[in-house]
């Protein structure tokens, strides 16, 4: 990477670039160049368990996308208000009718269930482990 030199190709084709980070997945020769997204260098570990590092990494990424989504929703509401599709307070004062309330309730519960699966999984494993027969062990199943 250090001695990477600009290659002489025309601006229109721009086929020379290849992100130096993606050694494992080399793009096809006609793929457009990409700018690297990962910095070269040692990645520190902050917590005793690297899983915590990964979880926090993911959490901040989720924070960002939630912030972006709220901004986008705000933009949409403001545009709709400006174009007189919505009144300024219409979203805040809106209440679902009984049918849509039920639909939203189902979707919301499913979302909570999905998010909480990580918590349930631990107990499930303990409980299932008590009753598990040898035939439930996939490794044992394929080794027989």
């Amino acid at each position: 990477m250090a001695t990477r030199k600009p290659k002489k190709t025309t601006s229109k084709t721009r086929q020379s670039g290849r992100t130096p980070k993606s050694k494992s997945s080399v793009p096809p020769p006609d793929a457009p160049p990409r700018i690297a997204r990962v910095a070269k260098g040692k990645k520190p570990q902050y917590f005793s368990d690297p899983a915590i590092d990964k979880l926090l990494w993911m959490t901040v990424t989720l924070m960002e996308e939630l912030s972006v989504t709220r901004d986008r929703l705000d933009t949409v509401e403001r545009l709709l208000t400006k174009k007189r599709v919505l009144k300024a307070t219409e979203v805040d004062l809106w209440r679902p009718d009984p049918k849509s309330a039920v639909q939203r309730d189902v979707r919301r519960k499913a979302f909570v269930d999905r998010m909480m699966r990580a918590v349930h999984a631990e107990l499930d494993e303990v409980l299932r482990g008590n009753h598990r027969g040898a035939e439930d062990d996939p490794v044992a199943a394929v080794e027989s």
Binding site: P6, T9, S16, R18, R34, I35, A39
Partner: peptide, 15 residues
């Protein structure tokens, strides 16, 4: 500074 490619990497010609 974790800038991917640093100050020196050309990702395409005339980058």
């Amino acid at each position: 500074h974790l800038q991917p490619g640093g100050y020196h990497t050309d990702f395409t010609s005339d980058d």
